[in-house]
């Protein structure tokens, strides 16, 4: 399954990546599973995406939850809690 990853703000800076296209195994079927899969890369990925951190997610530019299902070609973004206004 092909996923377009996007990272923003502090998370983008920590990971050193703004966008990345990844092929994920079929068992990575939800936004939460994708976060786990990315965390398994270790290093800054394990730390920045640790479950103790308040990371938010969006699927195809709409707010997503850990149980939000993934589909081929999805754009999945991870970012810190928002601070606009």
């Amino acid at each position: 399954m092909l996923i377009e990853l996007r990272f923003f703000a502090a998370l983008r800076e920590t990971l050193g990546v703004a966008a990345e296209r990844v092929e994920v195994p079929a068992e990575v079927a939800t936004v939460g599973a994708l976060r786990d899969w990315l965390r398994a890369r270790g290093g800054v990925w394990a730390d920045a995406l640790d479950l103790s951190r308040p990371v938010r997610a969006a699927r195809n530019q709409r707010a997503g939850q850990p149980d939000t299902p993934l589909a081929d070609g999805d754009e999945i973004a991870f970012f810190p809690p928002v601070t606009g206004g």
């Binding site: 923003f8 703000a9 502090a10 800076e13 308040p54 969006a58 707010a63 973004a77 970012f79 810190p80 809690p81 928002v82 601070t83 606009g84 206004g85």
Partner: peptide, 26 residues
């Protein structure tokens, strides 16, 4: 609208003072 903008719209602030930058926390 302001209350929801501040908590849902994907904007992030980064502050720089005296040459030191930090991301503003929610």
């Amino acid at each position: 609208v302001m209350d929801f903008l501040k908590t849902e719209a994907p904007f992030w602030k980064k502050e720089t003072a005296d040459g030191v930058s930090r991301w503003v926390e929610a």
